[in-house]
Protein backbone atom coordinates (compact mmCIF):
# COMPACT_ATOMS: atom_id res chain seq x y z
CA UNK A 1 0.00 0.00 0.00
CA UNK A 2 2.86 2.35 0.83
CA UNK A 3 4.32 1.75 -2.62
CA UNK A 4 0.95 2.39 -4.32
CA UNK A 5 0.48 5.59 -2.29
CA UNK A 6 3.96 6.76 -3.20
CA UNK A 7 3.32 6.04 -6.87
CA UNK A 8 0.03 7.96 -6.78
CA UNK A 9 1.60 10.93 -4.98
CA UNK A 10 4.52 11.06 -7.46
CA UNK A 11 2.18 10.80 -10.44
CA UNK A 12 -0.17 13.42 -9.03
CA UNK A 13 2.75 15.77 -8.27
CA UNK A 14 4.19 15.52 -11.78
CA UNK A 15 0.79 15.91 -13.45
CA UNK A 16 -0.08 18.92 -11.27
CA UNK A 17 3.30 20.48 -12.03
CA UNK A 18 2.66 20.13 -15.75
CA UNK A 19 -0.94 21.34 -15.59
CA UNK A 20 -0.13 24.33 -13.39
CA UNK A 21 1.87 25.72 -16.31
CA UNK A 22 2.81 29.32 -15.62
CA UNK A 23 2.68 28.95 -11.83
CA UNK A 24 5.16 26.06 -12.03
CA UNK A 25 7.30 28.06 -14.45
CA UNK A 26 7.44 30.95 -11.95
CA UNK A 27 8.64 28.57 -9.21
CA UNK A 28 11.28 27.07 -11.51
CA UNK A 29 12.56 30.52 -12.54
CA UNK A 30 12.70 31.72 -8.93
CA UNK A 31 14.76 28.67 -7.96
CA UNK A 32 16.93 29.12 -11.06
CA UNK A 33 17.81 32.66 -9.98
CA UNK A 34 18.71 31.48 -6.46
CA UNK A 35 20.87 28.64 -7.75
CA UNK A 36 22.49 30.79 -10.43
CA UNK A 37 23.53 33.20 -7.67
CA UNK A 38 24.94 30.35 -5.57
CA UNK A 39 26.79 28.96 -8.60
CA UNK A 40 28.14 32.38 -9.55
CA UNK A 41 29.40 32.81 -5.97
CA UNK A 42 31.20 29.46 -6.11
CA UNK A 43 32.81 30.18 -9.46
CA UNK A 44 33.55 33.80 -8.56
CA UNK A 45 35.32 32.63 -5.43
CA UNK A 46 37.38 30.17 -7.50
CA UNK A 47 38.16 33.01 -9.91
CA UNK A 48 39.49 35.25 -7.14
CA UNK A 49 41.45 32.37 -5.60
CA UNK A 50 42.91 31.73 -9.03
CA UNK A 51 44.03 35.35 -9.29
CA UNK A 52 45.65 35.17 -5.85
CA UNK A 53 47.45 31.93 -6.76
CA UNK A 54 48.53 33.44 -10.03
CA UNK A 55 49.93 36.45 -8.21
CA UNK A 56 51.67 34.24 -5.66
CA UNK A 57 53.52 32.47 -8.46
CA UNK A 58 54.81 35.87 -9.53
CA UNK A 59 56.34 36.44 -6.12
CA UNK A 60 59.98 35.52 -6.17
CA UNK A 61 63.37 36.90 -5.37
CA UNK A 62 65.35 37.54 -8.44
CA UNK A 63 69.15 37.78 -8.09
CA UNK A 64 70.88 39.27 -11.12
CA UNK A 65 74.61 38.65 -11.42
CA UNK A 66 77.20 40.75 -13.10
CA UNK A 67 78.15 39.48 -16.51
CA UNK A 68 81.65 38.90 -15.20
CA UNK A 69 80.48 36.72 -12.33
CA UNK A 70 82.16 33.36 -11.94
CA UNK A 71 79.89 30.41 -12.77
CA UNK A 72 81.24 28.35 -9.87
CA UNK A 73 80.41 31.08 -7.40
CA UNK A 74 76.88 31.36 -8.81
CA UNK A 75 76.48 27.59 -8.52
CA UNK A 76 77.72 27.77 -4.93
CA UNK A 77 75.13 30.42 -4.06
CA UNK A 78 72.44 28.36 -5.75
CA UNK A 79 73.39 25.34 -3.65
CA UNK A 80 73.37 27.30 -0.40
CA UNK A 81 69.94 28.74 -1.29
CA UNK A 82 68.60 25.28 -2.08
CA UNK A 83 69.76 24.14 1.33
CA UNK A 84 67.42 26.62 3.03
CA UNK A 85 64.29 25.02 4.51
CA UNK A 86 62.09 27.93 3.39
CA UNK A 87 63.03 27.60 -0.27
CA UNK A 88 60.77 25.70 -2.60
CA UNK A 89 62.58 26.11 -5.86
CA UNK A 90 65.72 27.74 -7.16
CA UNK A 91 66.01 28.32 -10.89
CA UNK A 92 69.27 29.28 -12.49
CA UNK A 93 69.14 31.06 -15.81
CA UNK A 94 72.64 31.21 -17.25
CA UNK A 95 73.83 34.27 -19.11
CA UNK A 96 73.74 32.24 -22.34
CA UNK A 97 70.12 31.27 -21.74
CA UNK A 98 69.29 34.86 -20.93
CA UNK A 99 70.97 35.95 -24.16
CA UNK A 100 69.09 33.35 -26.25
CA UNK A 101 65.79 34.25 -24.65
CA UNK A 102 66.37 37.92 -25.40
CA UNK A 103 67.20 37.14 -29.04
CA UNK A 104 64.12 34.97 -29.25
CA UNK A 105 61.92 37.75 -27.88
CA UNK A 106 63.27 40.25 -30.39
CA UNK A 107 63.72 37.99 -33.38
CA UNK A 108 61.81 40.43 -35.58
CA UNK A 109 64.05 43.34 -34.71
CA UNK A 110 66.99 42.85 -37.05
CA UNK A 111 68.68 46.09 -36.05
CA UNK A 112 68.69 45.22 -32.39
CA UNK A 113 69.97 41.71 -33.02
CA UNK A 114 72.71 43.04 -35.26
CA UNK A 115 73.94 45.51 -32.68
CA UNK A 116 73.75 42.78 -30.04
CA UNK A 117 75.99 40.58 -32.16
CA UNK A 118 78.52 43.37 -32.31
CA UNK A 119 78.47 44.00 -28.55
CA UNK A 120 78.44 40.33 -27.58
CA UNK A 121 76.45 38.89 -24.66
CA UNK A 122 75.86 41.75 -22.20
CA UNK A 123 73.68 39.72 -19.83
CA UNK A 124 74.54 38.30 -16.50
CA UNK A 125 73.13 35.06 -15.09
CA UNK A 126 70.05 35.18 -12.92
CA UNK A 127 68.66 33.10 -10.07
CA UNK A 128 64.99 33.05 -9.22
CA UNK A 129 64.13 31.89 -5.74
CA UNK A 130 60.64 30.76 -4.85
CA UNK A 131 59.60 30.22 -1.25
CA UNK A 132 57.27 27.54 0.08
CA UNK A 133 55.17 30.27 1.62
CA UNK A 134 55.06 33.97 0.63
CA UNK A 135 55.63 34.85 4.30
CA UNK A 136 59.07 33.26 4.14
CA UNK A 137 60.52 35.65 1.59
CA UNK A 138 61.57 37.91 4.39
CA UNK A 139 63.97 35.36 5.89
CA UNK A 140 65.36 34.44 2.47
CA UNK A 141 65.99 38.12 1.81
CA UNK A 142 67.73 38.38 5.16
CA UNK A 143 69.90 35.43 4.26
CA UNK A 144 71.04 37.17 1.07
CA UNK A 145 71.64 40.51 2.74
CA UNK A 146 73.59 38.98 5.58
CA UNK A 147 77.16 38.37 4.47
CA UNK A 148 77.80 35.85 7.18
CA UNK A 149 74.75 33.97 6.14
CA UNK A 150 75.85 33.57 2.58
CA UNK A 151 79.13 32.11 3.79
CA UNK A 152 81.74 31.66 1.09
CA UNK A 153 79.88 33.59 -1.59
CA UNK A 154 81.42 36.78 -2.76
CA UNK A 155 78.72 39.46 -2.73
CA UNK A 156 80.49 41.49 -5.34
CA UNK A 157 79.26 39.15 -8.09
CA UNK A 158 75.68 40.18 -7.39
CA UNK A 159 74.44 43.05 -9.49
CA UNK A 160 70.95 43.44 -8.05
CA UNK A 161 68.46 41.69 -5.81
CA UNK A 162 64.88 42.47 -6.73
CA UNK A 163 62.07 41.55 -4.49
CA UNK A 164 58.43 42.26 -5.55
CA UNK A 165 56.86 41.21 -2.28
CA UNK A 166 55.41 44.60 -1.31
CA UNK A 167 53.43 45.00 -4.50
CA UNK A 168 52.23 41.44 -4.34
CA UNK A 169 51.25 41.80 -0.69
CA UNK A 170 49.24 44.87 -1.48
CA UNK A 171 47.50 43.15 -4.41
CA UNK A 172 46.74 40.13 -2.26
CA UNK A 173 45.23 42.35 0.40
CA UNK A 174 43.06 44.15 -2.18
CA UNK A 175 41.85 40.83 -3.57
CA UNK A 176 41.14 39.49 -0.09
CA UNK A 177 39.08 42.61 0.54
CA UNK A 178 37.22 42.14 -2.76
CA UNK A 179 36.53 38.55 -1.71
CA UNK A 180 35.13 39.62 1.65
CA UNK A 181 32.94 42.35 0.14
CA UNK A 182 31.91 39.95 -2.63
CA UNK A 183 30.98 37.34 -0.04
CA UNK A 184 28.77 39.80 1.83
CA UNK A 185 27.09 41.00 -1.37
CA UNK A 186 26.63 37.43 -2.61
CA UNK A 187 25.21 36.30 0.73
CA UNK A 188 22.72 39.17 0.65
CA UNK A 189 21.82 38.32 -2.96
CA UNK A 190 21.40 34.64 -2.14
CA UNK A 191 19.19 35.51 0.83
CA UNK A 192 17.06 37.77 -1.36
CA UNK A 193 16.81 35.11 -4.07
CA UNK A 194 15.83 32.45 -1.52
CA UNK A 195 13.27 34.82 -0.01
CA UNK A 196 11.82 35.48 -3.48
CA UNK A 197 11.71 31.74 -4.15
CA UNK A 198 9.88 31.10 -0.88
CA UNK A 199 7.40 33.82 -1.73
CA UNK A 200 6.79 32.52 -5.23
CA UNK A 201 6.20 28.97 -4.02
CA UNK A 202 4.03 30.19 -1.14
CA UNK A 203 1.97 32.16 -3.65
CA UNK A 204 1.71 29.12 -5.94
CA UNK A 205 0.36 27.04 -3.05
CA UNK A 206 -1.85 29.91 -1.84
CA UNK A 207 -3.59 29.69 -5.24
CA UNK A 208 -4.26 26.03 -4.46
CA UNK A 209 -5.65 26.56 -0.95
CA UNK A 210 -9.22 25.87 -2.13
CA UNK A 211 -7.99 22.69 -3.73
CA UNK A 212 -6.36 21.70 -0.45
CA UNK A 213 -9.60 22.28 1.46
CA UNK A 214 -11.46 20.09 -1.08
CA UNK A 215 -8.87 17.34 -0.64
CA UNK A 216 -9.37 17.49 3.10
CA UNK A 217 -13.15 17.35 2.70
CA UNK A 218 -13.05 14.14 0.70
CA UNK A 219 -11.04 12.65 3.54
CA UNK A 220 -7.49 12.93 2.24
CA UNK A 221 -4.89 12.47 4.98
CA UNK A 222 -1.99 14.88 5.30
CA UNK A 223 0.36 12.70 3.24
CA UNK A 224 -2.06 12.73 0.32
CA UNK A 225 -2.56 16.48 0.52
CA UNK A 226 1.05 17.53 1.09
CA UNK A 227 2.75 14.83 -0.99
CA UNK A 228 1.95 16.13 -4.49
CA UNK A 229 2.93 19.70 -3.51
CA UNK A 230 6.27 18.46 -2.20
CA UNK A 231 6.81 16.52 -5.44
CA UNK A 232 6.01 19.72 -7.36
CA UNK A 233 8.55 21.61 -5.23
CA UNK A 234 11.22 18.97 -5.83
CA UNK A 235 10.49 18.98 -9.57
CA UNK A 236 10.83 22.76 -9.66
CA UNK A 237 14.12 22.42 -7.73
CA UNK A 238 15.45 19.84 -10.19
CA UNK A 239 14.51 21.83 -13.29
CA UNK A 240 15.81 25.03 -11.65
CA UNK A 241 19.17 23.26 -11.14
CA UNK A 242 19.37 22.28 -14.81
CA UNK A 243 18.49 25.80 -15.97
CA UNK A 244 21.01 27.38 -13.58
CA UNK A 245 23.76 25.02 -14.82
CA UNK A 246 22.92 25.85 -18.44
CA UNK A 247 22.86 29.54 -17.59
CA UNK A 248 26.22 29.46 -15.83
CA UNK A 249 28.12 28.02 -18.80
CA UNK A 250 27.72 31.01 -21.17
CA UNK A 251 28.37 33.31 -18.21
CA UNK A 252 31.73 31.73 -17.37
CA UNK A 253 32.61 31.64 -21.07
CA UNK A 254 31.87 35.37 -21.27
CA UNK A 255 33.91 36.15 -18.13
CA UNK A 256 36.79 34.08 -19.52
CA UNK A 257 36.64 35.87 -22.87
CA UNK A 258 36.62 39.32 -21.29
CA UNK A 259 39.31 38.69 -18.67
CA UNK A 260 41.69 36.42 -20.56
CA UNK A 261 43.95 39.33 -21.47
CA UNK A 262 44.11 40.60 -17.92
CA UNK A 263 44.28 37.33 -15.99
CA UNK A 264 45.64 34.99 -18.61
CA UNK A 265 46.17 32.08 -16.25
CA UNK A 266 42.63 31.49 -15.03
CA UNK A 267 40.46 29.49 -17.36
CA UNK A 268 37.00 29.63 -15.79
CA UNK A 269 35.47 27.40 -18.46
CA UNK A 270 37.91 24.60 -17.65
CA UNK A 271 37.29 25.21 -13.95
CA UNK A 272 33.54 24.93 -14.54
CA UNK A 273 33.89 21.75 -16.58
CA UNK A 274 36.43 20.04 -14.32
CA UNK A 275 34.42 20.91 -11.18
CA UNK A 276 31.07 20.21 -12.81
CA UNK A 277 30.18 17.18 -10.61
CA UNK A 278 30.81 19.24 -7.45
CA UNK A 279 28.92 22.31 -8.75
CA UNK A 280 26.10 20.03 -9.97
CA UNK A 281 25.79 18.34 -6.56
CA UNK A 282 25.85 21.61 -4.61
CA UNK A 283 23.25 23.23 -6.87
CA UNK A 284 21.08 20.11 -7.05
CA UNK A 285 21.01 19.63 -3.28
CA UNK A 286 20.33 23.36 -2.78
CA UNK A 287 17.59 23.33 -5.44
CA UNK A 288 15.86 20.25 -4.04
CA UNK A 289 16.13 21.56 -0.47
CA UNK A 290 14.78 24.96 -1.53
CA UNK A 291 11.82 23.47 -3.43
CA UNK A 292 11.03 20.98 -0.69
CA UNK A 293 11.32 23.29 2.32
CA UNK A 294 9.44 26.17 0.68
CA UNK A 295 6.61 23.84 -0.40
CA UNK A 296 6.51 22.13 2.98
CA UNK A 297 6.26 25.40 4.92
CA UNK A 298 3.66 26.83 2.54
CA UNK A 299 1.43 23.78 2.36
CA UNK A 300 1.61 23.20 6.12
CA UNK A 301 -0.32 26.40 6.63
CA UNK A 302 -3.31 25.05 4.70
CA UNK A 303 -3.34 21.47 5.92
CA UNK A 304 -4.21 22.06 9.51
CA UNK A 305 -7.35 19.99 10.07
Amino acid sequence: MIWINLKRILYSGFVNFWRNGLVSLASVLAITVSLYTIGALMIGSAFLNGIIDEIKTKVDISISFKSTADTNEIEALKKSLEALAEVKEVTLITREEEYEAFKQRHQDNALLLQSLDEVGNPFGARINVRALDPAQYESIANFLNNEEGSLSVNRSIIDQISFKKDIVDRLSRIIALIKRVGLVISTVMICLAIFATFNTITLAIYISREEISVMRLVGAGNVYVKGPFLVEGLTAGFLGTLLALFGLYPSVAWVKATTINVFGGIDLVSYYISNFPMIFLVLLSSGLALGFIASYLAVRRYTRI
Binding site: R216, V218, G219, A220, G221, I305
Partner: peptide, 14 residues
Protein backbone atom coordinates in the same frame (compact mmCIF):
# COMPACT_ATOMS: atom_id res chain seq x y z
CA UNK B 1 -7.90 13.37 16.78
CA UNK B 2 -6.43 14.72 13.53
CA UNK B 3 -5.75 11.22 12.20
CA UNK B 4 -9.31 10.03 12.80
CA UNK B 5 -10.99 13.04 11.17
CA UNK B 6 -10.04 12.06 7.56
CA UNK B 7 -11.50 8.60 8.26
CA UNK B 8 -14.77 10.16 9.40
CA UNK B 9 -14.87 12.35 6.28
CA UNK B 10 -14.44 9.29 4.06
CA UNK B 11 -17.74 7.99 5.48
CA UNK B 12 -19.47 11.23 4.50
CA UNK B 13 -20.01 12.33 0.91
CA UNK B 14 -20.20 16.12 0.39
Amino acid sequence: NRFAIPKLRRRVGS
